[in-house]
Simulated assay, not measured.
Amino acid sequence: MFQRIIPLLLGLSFAGMVQADTLKLRDDAPARYVVKRGDTLWAISGRYLSSPWRWPQLWQMNRSEIRDPHWIYPGDVLVLDRATGKLHLEKGQRVVKLSPQIRVEDSDAIRSIPAARIAALLKRPLVVEQAEFTAAPRIIAGADDRVVLAQGNTAYSQPLDSAGVWQAFRAGKELKDPDSKESLGFEVIYGGDLAVTDLGTTVSTLQVKSSVEEIAIGDRLIKYQTVPVLNYVPHEAPAAMGGKVVSIYGGVADAAQYSSVVINRGARDGAELGYVFGVYKKPRSVKVDGKEVTLPAPEISQLFVYRVFDKVSYGLLLDTTQAVNVGDTLGQPE
């Protein structure tokens, strides 16, 4: 899924650093860095820039001109020439086994952001409009009188319109805009995957293939949709977009680094994959000598948008310095 990784051209350049006020090399940037398994482009760029989300500028990305991209892999070496302000890539040795019937995939290439943190959340609807959810077919019975189904169990549902894999969900909490109070949809709770064994005409038959939560009679079924391969290129969200954190995935009160959060900006607002926001503490006031004084609202994290719905988006928190909470605001990243 994460195999189209951001390309890195040989002879990567800091030519864009003429804009020194927007792209500044760290004083402690390493002269040489050996890429390691588990690195991300965000983390590697953080060794060279105070604002790692600016890596497209750091590496002078111009995807329209890339015809034969070179990927960055464990063992490759980044070499910084401070005299010229250029960063070069020395390719390490990489052994790949080939066969006539197998196409080599870039499974070892370095990811843009931690893939494991969001992989599961790319396979599920997560947010569904109420009307769409209530119209989805229901599980109506199991093979016996049990109300909770486990892996291997048979399930019966209202008629389905296609074979294949369906996912079981139950209703979660409603998401509301903290300012307008508009309903932004319902977070749905994923139960597991079921495969159709008989479509039928009035009742469909399925078998539970996997479960991460209880799958119960009455749960709704949504057809599994394969997620296209995405190339997450970070770019700054418009200054005027703003927004707020409306929910923390998993139901925890405090979100830490690599947590997923929901924001009240979606496709209808112009949100895009790869947008980077600064996350700022919700403004807080205290009384001093009988007067209200508003405390500074520092940037406490940066949010990387990786999934966009109509009214909301999901983002991964990166470089977090303190807990992020519902109501914290979004602005330009520093």
Rank of each mutant, 00 (worst) to 15 (best):
A239W: 01
D106S: 12
T294R: 06
S64A: 13
I5F: 00
G251E: 13
V128Y: 02
L58E: 05
E236P: 00
V326Y: 09
Q332F: 00
S247F: 07
Q332N: 05
D219S: 08
R103Y: 03
D106H: 12
L126G: 01
L78G: 02
G191C: 07
P52C: 02
D81V: 01
L295C: 12
T329S: 13
I113L: 15
T154F: 01
P283E: 10
K281M: 11
L303Y: 03
S301F: 03
A297W: 00
S313E: 10
Q158A: 05
P100T: 07
P298C: 11
Y190A: 06
I140A: 09
T205P: 00
D76Y: 10
Y280L: 02
R94Q: 11
A267P: 03
A141D: 04
R117Q: 14
G192W: 08
E105M: 09
D144A: 08
E105L: 07
E214I: 03
K223I: 06
L49K: 05
I110S: 02
R37C: 01
D28I: 06
T84K: 15
E174N: 04
L330R: 08
A43H: 09
V326G: 04
K123D: 13
Y280E: 03
L23N: 02
P228D: 14
E174S: 09
S211W: 04
S157M: 07
P69I: 14
I72G: 07
V246Y: 09
T226R: 12
H70L: 10
D81N: 11
F14S: 09
Q332S: 04
E236K: 13
V188A: 05
S313T: 12
V95A: 10
A116E: 14
V312M: 14
L230K: 08
G278L: 09
T329A: 14
M1Q: 11
G85H: 04
V227H: 13
D269R: 02
V227W: 09
Y258E: 07
V18Y: 13
G327K: 10
V165A: 05
R54A: 09
A15N: 06
R54S: 06
A267G: 12
G274F: 08
V308K: 10
L80A: 00
E334A: 12
Q19I: 04
S157E: 07
G266F: 07
G191S: 10
P296E: 15
A256G: 04
A15G: 00
E292I: 06
I66Y: 08
